[in-house]
């Protein structure tokens, strides 16, 4: 049972109070975009064994979406943060680097 702290209201919610939303920090491609870019936006999802950034909604709580950085192998949570950002905050990236020195780093 994953337990994630919603950064919007501060509740440490268990998985049954949350709704998963897949990979975070996707860039939307709309009309005018190439087939390749659109395909990648629609279908190509990272599925790493290790550090991953995800969208979660505190569905049975404050209703807000937030983002989480966690390890898909050990389920260690490096942090949760606001959904109103295009990339993970520096302090979370620093924390991940310290804990996972071989991590390739975040890229858009």
């Amino acid at each position: 049972m994953l337990i994630l702290t919603c950064p919007c209201c501060g509740v440490a919610a268990e998985e049954t109070e949350l709704q998963p939303g897949g990979e975070a920090h996707l860039k939307r491609f709309g009309p005018g975009s190439s087939d390749d870019a659109f395909e990648a936006y629609m279908f190509a999802r990272a599925n790493p064994k290790g550090v991953h950034f995800e969208r979660w909604r505190h569905a049975y709580g404050c209703g807000k979406w937030f983002l989480a950085a966690r390890c898909t192998a050990t389920l260690e949570v490096f942090g949760t943060y606001s959904a109103q950002t295009k990339e993970p905050p520096a302090e979370i990236v620093t924390k991940i680097r310290a804990k996972r020195p071989d991590w390739a780093g975040w890229s858009a």
Binding site: C9, V11, A13, T16, E17, Y60, G61, C62
Partner: peptide, 10 residues
């Protein structure tokens, strides 16, 4: 005030 679920509903 705690928002949560009671069994299967909000």
């Amino acid at each position: 005030i705690r928002r949560t679920r009671a069994a299967q509903v909000a």
